Computed example of a mutant assay.
Amino acid sequence: MSVAKKDYKKITTKSLIDMKANGEKISMLTAYDFTMAKIVDTAGIDVILVGDSASNVMAGHETTLPITLDQMIYHASSVVRAVDRALVVVDLPFGSYQSDSKEALRSSIRIMKESGGHAVKLEGGREIESSIKKILNAGIPVMGHLGLTPQSIYKFGTYTVRAKEEEEAEQLLEDAKMLERIGCFALVLEKIPAKLAQKVAESISIPVIGIGAGGGVDGQVLVLHDMIGMTHEFSPRFLRRYMNLFEDMTKAIGQYAADVKSKDFPNANEQY
Results as ranks from 00 to 15, higher is better:
residue 38 K to S: 14
residue 34 F to V: 04
residue 242 Y to T: 13
residue 204 I to S: 03
residue 42 T to E: 15
residue 54 A to K: 00
residue 2 S to F: 07
residue 191 K to L: 13
residue 111 I to R: 10
residue 259 D to L: 06
residue 187 L to I: 11
residue 144 G to Q: 09
residue 87 L to Y: 02
residue 144 G to K: 04
residue 20 K to M: 00
residue 19 M to F: 04
residue 214 G to T: 06
residue 14 K to E: 15
residue 258 A to D: 14
residue 201 A to D: 03
residue 221 V to Q: 05
residue 249 M to R: 05
residue 138 A to L: 11
residue 142 V to S: 06
residue 223 V to F: 02
residue 82 A to I: 02
residue 204 I to M: 04
residue 194 A to T: 11
residue 70 D to C: 00
residue 249 M to E: 14
residue 4 A to H: 07
residue 124 G to V: 14
residue 80 V to L: 03
residue 68 T to R: 00
residue 199 K to N: 12
residue 171 Q to N: 15
residue 182 I to A: 00
residue 222 L to A: 06
residue 132 I to A: 00
residue 222 L to V: 11
residue 105 L to K: 10
residue 174 E to K: 13
residue 218 D to W: 04
residue 167 E to S: 09
residue 141 P to Q: 08
residue 252 A to F: 13
residue 143 M to W: 08
residue 63 T to K: 03
residue 118 H to T: 01
residue 243 M to F: 15
residue 134 K to F: 01
residue 115 S to G: 10
residue 233 E to S: 07
residue 43 A to E: 15
residue 103 E to Q: 15
residue 44 G to Y: 03
residue 141 P to M: 07
residue 23 G to D: 05
residue 84 D to N: 02
residue 192 I to A: 07
residue 253 I to R: 09
residue 89 V to W: 01
residue 71 Q to F: 02
residue 218 D to E: 11
residue 125 G to N: 12
residue 23 G to S: 00
residue 223 V to R: 02
residue 15 S to K: 08
residue 241 R to A: 05
residue 74 Y to P: 08
residue 241 R to M: 13
residue 206 I to G: 03
residue 178 M to H: 08
residue 131 S to G: 07
residue 140 I to L: 09
residue 88 V to C: 04
residue 209 I to W: 01
residue 240 R to I: 14
residue 123 E to P: 12
residue 5 K to E: 15
residue 16 L to W: 00
residue 239 L to A: 05
residue 171 Q to D: 12
residue 103 E to T: 11
residue 27 S to D: 01
residue 90 V to P: 01
residue 48 I to M: 00
residue 178 M to S: 01
residue 140 I to C: 05
residue 106 R to N: 14
residue 43 A to K: 05
residue 212 G to L: 06
residue 100 D to T: 08
residue 224 L to Y: 06
residue 156 F to H: 14
residue 50 V to S: 00
residue 137 N to L: 12
residue 109 I to K: 13
residue 230 M to S: 12
residue 113 K to P: 09
residue 146 L to D: 07
residue 250 T to E: 11
residue 123 E to S: 06
